[in-house]
Simulated assay, not measured.
Amino acid sequence: MIIMKTPQQIELMAQAGKILTACHRELREIIRPGITTMEIDHFADHFINSHGAKAEQKGYKGYPFATCASVNDEICHGFPTQTPLQEGDIVTIDMVVNLNGWLADSAWSYPVGQISEKADKLLNVTKECLYIGIEKAVIGNRLGDISHAIQAHAESYSFSVVRDFTGHGIGQKMHEDPQVLHYGNPNRGVKLSEGMVFTIEPMINIGAYNLTIDENGWTARTADGSLSAQYEHTIAITKNGPLVLTEQD
Rank of each mutant, 00 (worst) to 15 (best):
S70C: 09
A16T: 04
G167V: 03
P64K: 10
K18N: 11
I170P: 01
N205V: 06
L85D: 09
I2V: 14
E117W: 05
D120T: 12
I3F: 06
S50K: 15
T92W: 01
A107I: 12
S158L: 06
E215G: 06
P242D: 04
I90N: 00
S228A: 15
K18A: 08
R163M: 04
F47V: 00
K136H: 04
P186G: 07
I235H: 02
E29I: 10
K5H: 14
N49R: 15
T238N: 00
Q172G: 08
Y157V: 05
T81A: 05
A66W: 02
L27R: 08
F47C: 05
H42M: 09
G171C: 02
I132T: 09
T238D: 08
L122Y: 11
D145H: 08
G88D: 01
V162N: 15
N187G: 09
G189P: 05
A69R: 03
G34Y: 12
E39V: 06
S70P: 05
L211C: 10
K5F: 11
I3T: 14
P202W: 02
T234I: 01
E201K: 10
P111M: 13
L20S: 11
A220R: 14
S193C: 12
G17V: 00
I146T: 07
A53H: 03
E39W: 07
G169E: 07
Y183A: 09
D45I: 02
K54H: 12
A119T: 07
Y63T: 01
D45Y: 04
I200P: 03
K239N: 04
Y110H: 10
I3C: 11
Y131S: 06
I48C: 01
R28I: 12
A154L: 06
I237Q: 12
H153M: 10
S193M: 14
